[in-house]
Amino acid sequence: MPEPLGEFQRRMLEFIVNYIRREGMPPTNREIGKAMKIASTGHVDYHLSMLEKRGYIIREAKKSRGIKLTRHPWGIPVEGTIAAGEPIEIFSEPDQTIEVGHGVDPESSFALIVRGQSMIEDHICDGDYVVIKRQRTCENGDIVVAVHLVEGTPGKATLKRFFLEKEQVRLQPANAELEPIYIPRDEWDREWEIQGKVIAIVRHYGGSGRAA
């Protein structure tokens, strides 16, 4: 895992990422220096060597545009599919990542692909990616990943708003045509768990990701 960056090197890395996305090739040291207001190319080279040492980039020797990203620095893993409807089994897609803002901690977050229309009134549509913060607890009204623990399987998960009521848990869809899932408290305590809550939605328009 790459080491954390200070503010200046984080901004330099962000410039490199955005330049590659926009131009289809990496910037030169002079272009980086101009963007970062650094007069000395030696000073630029020092910061690039720190980015390389910390695992964010690699550089090809004797190439003016020799910077390569080791991975997208603000990507998080897509860990499977989540039902916006009846619970379905989670499956793993360990090789897929999705780009998110640098404010999302990749160590404590993951993404799931939404299947179904039960959360459309919360603007979560079939095919969207939801960004999940890993946690076992939640507050009433949070949109959560609730997992029904089925012996011998990874469990069946659903995406719903969570409400703890007197004798039961209510998993509430955001679709007026669908009924809530009601779970008695003792069954919830034995057979269900929270795996995280939604902190962002990423929608794809023509192949590009956009946070909602």
Rank of each mutant, 00 (worst) to 15 (best):
Met1Leu: 08
Ile16Arg: 10
Glu167Met: 11
Pro4Ser: 04
Ile58Gln: 10
Lys166Cys: 11
Lys197Val: 08
Val104Ala: 02
Gln117Glu: 13
Leu51Ala: 03
Ile181Trp: 06
Arg185Tyr: 12
Met50Trp: 05
Glu121Cys: 05
Lys37Leu: 12
Ala111Met: 07
Pro73Ser: 02
Glu89Ser: 11
Gly42Trp: 04
Ala35Pro: 12
His43Gly: 12
Gln168Thr: 08
Ile181Gly: 03
Arg22Pro: 00
Phe163Tyr: 15
Lys68Gln: 09
Arg54Ser: 06
Gly75Gln: 10
Glu79Cys: 11
Tyr56Thr: 04
Trp188Thr: 14
Ile201Asn: 04
Gly24Ser: 04
Thr41Ala: 09
Gln9His: 12
Asp122Asn: 11
Lys34Phe: 11
Val202Thr: 11
Pro106His: 02
Arg54Tyr: 10
Asp128Glu: 04
Glu191Trp: 11
Met119Arg: 04
Glu60Gln: 03
Glu89Gln: 14
Glu23Gln: 15
Thr41Asp: 10
Leu171Glu: 10
Ile181Cys: 02
Arg170Gln: 13
Glu60Met: 01
Gln172Val: 05
Ile90Ala: 10
Ile32Met: 12
Val100Asp: 03
Arg71Gly: 14
Gly103Pro: 00
Trp74Tyr: 09
Asp186Cys: 07
Glu23His: 13
Ser40Met: 05
Ala176Thr: 13
Ile38Glu: 11
Ile82Phe: 00
Val130Trp: 01
Thr153Glu: 13
Arg22Val: 10
Leu48Pro: 05
Leu51Arg: 07
His43Met: 08
Phe91Gly: 01
Thr137Phe: 02
Glu191Leu: 13
Gly152Ala: 07
Pro73Asn: 05
Ala174Leu: 04
Lys62Gly: 01
Ala111Trp: 03
Val114His: 01
Val100Lys: 08
Val145Cys: 08
Pro27Met: 07
Cys125Phe: 12
Glu193Lys: 14
Leu171Val: 12
Pro184Val: 14
His43Ile: 04
Gly209Ala: 14
Ala146Tyr: 01
Ile38Phe: 02
Ala174Thr: 04
Phe8Gly: 07
Cys125Pro: 00
Asn140Lys: 09
Lys53Arg: 15
Ile124Gly: 01
Cys125Ala: 10
Pro2Ile: 04
Glu3Leu: 15
Ile113Asn: 11
Leu159Tyr: 00
His47Gly: 03
Phe162Tyr: 10
Gly24Tyr: 01
Glu23Asp: 12
Leu164Ala: 12
Glu165Phe: 02
Pro4Lys: 09
Gln172Glu: 14
Ala146Phe: 02
Gln96Trp: 00
Gly206Thr: 07
Tyr205Ile: 15
Ala211Lys: 11
Glu7Trp: 06
Lys37Thr: 12
Met50Val: 14
Asp128Lys: 03
Gln168Ala: 14
Thr137Asp: 06
Glu187Trp: 08
Arg185Gln: 15
Arg210Lys: 15
Ala146Cys: 10
Gln9Thr: 13
Arg203His: 15
Gly6Lys: 06
Arg22Asn: 13
Val145Gly: 01
Tyr46Arg: 15
Gly127Asn: 09
Leu48Thr: 03
Asn18Gly: 05
Asp186Pro: 02
Val100Arg: 05
Phe110Tyr: 15
Gly116Thr: 08
Arg11Ile: 06
Gly80Asp: 04
Glu179Leu: 13
Val198Leu: 06
